[in-house]
Design a protein around this nucleic acid. Structure first.
Length: 265
DNA sequence: CTCAGTGTTCAGTG
DNA sequence: TCACTGAACACTGA
């Protein structure tokens, strides 16, 4: 599920259903991996009875503002997400936490692979890991000059830099590939070797792709057909874009990378 | 049975 | 110290 658009979609879901409501019960599972730095039982005890005042996001991290600190913070890893329902029987498999609200609504976070994290922090925005994030393209994208300056100090492949959450928070594997395809940049190019014009093109492409995905509520079935997204999955050798361009798969920045050599330079 | 995967962290290297 | 790379983490589904 979780890159910036999916997490923003989850944020809006929770905002619709939880803001202004009180948490009457918190159910937890005893999972010391997903719960990071807090015992699940304490997490439940501290949050019961609190009122939700706002839901915030930065990069792939999301947290609740409550009427009293500390506040819960969530990261979805690869397989986490939020589900809202009313009937207790609809509690999803692999759930890690379930909040019951004062209007019979329930919110659960399932995470099959357990790479997600649930924290309890006095000030999530100003504590690691959120405080160590770089810019968020939706919240505080730097201007063109500052963006180019950021790339100039990096010798790693541009793909690896985009994946670095300390550079661009919220960009994950498919967004990085999509943006490089649409900006016509080869993923192995060193970030510091991009020209000013290429850096500016990359910056505006990041904005365009992320805004579009968010506008579509991260529903990938509605992403434009011309996007690489629909054609990149599976490392099959006959993969091609909608325009018939050959897609190549490689490992760059430690992740599977799909790109189109005929278009990306 | 094997392996890849919409992610992050940390040890090791230069 | 910094930047970067690759393995580890943990588990499902193809």
């Amino acid at each position: 599920m979780p890159e910036l658009p999916e997490v923003e979609s989850a944020r809006r879901l929770v905002e619709r259903h939880l803001v202004g409501r009180c948490i009457v019960r918190v159910a937890v599972v005893d999972d010391r991996i997903v719960y990071a730095g807090v015992a699940p039982r304490r997490f439940a005890r501290v949050l019961r009875g609190r009122r939700v005042e706002a839901v915030r996001r930065r990069g792939k991290h999301l947290w609740f503002e409550l009427d009293r600190r500390p506040w819960p913070a969530f990261h979805f890893g690869m397989t986490g997400w939020f589900e809202v329902y009313r009937c207790p029987a609809d509690r999803p498999p692999f759930w890690k936490v379930e909040f019951a609200l004062d209007n019979d609504t329930r919110l659960a976070m399932p995470d099959a692979r357990r790479l997600g994290r649930i924290r309890l922090l006095a000030d999530p925005e100003h504590a690691p890991p959120i405080s160590e994030l770089g810019f968020d393209p939706l919240l505080d994208m730097p201007d063109a000059a500052a963006f180019a300056a950021g790339l100039a100090g990096r010798r790693a492949p541009i793909k690896a830099v985009l994946l670095d959450q300390g550079f661009s928070a919220g960009v994950g594997n498919w967004i990085a590939d999509e943006v490089l395809y649409q900006a016509r940049l080869a993923p192995r190019r060193r970030a510091c070797d991009l020209t000013t014009a290429e850096a500016h093109r990359l910056r505006s492409t990041i904005l365009r792709v992320i805004h579009k995905a968010v506008d579509l509520d991260a529903d990938n079935s509605r992403f434009p057909r011309a996007w690489l997204f629909h054609h990149r999955w599976g490392r099959n050798s006959d993969a091609a874009t909608a325009r018939g361009e050959k897609i190549v798969h490689a490992t760059i920045g430690g992740r599977t990378t799909a790109w189109v050599p005929a278009v990306q330079r």
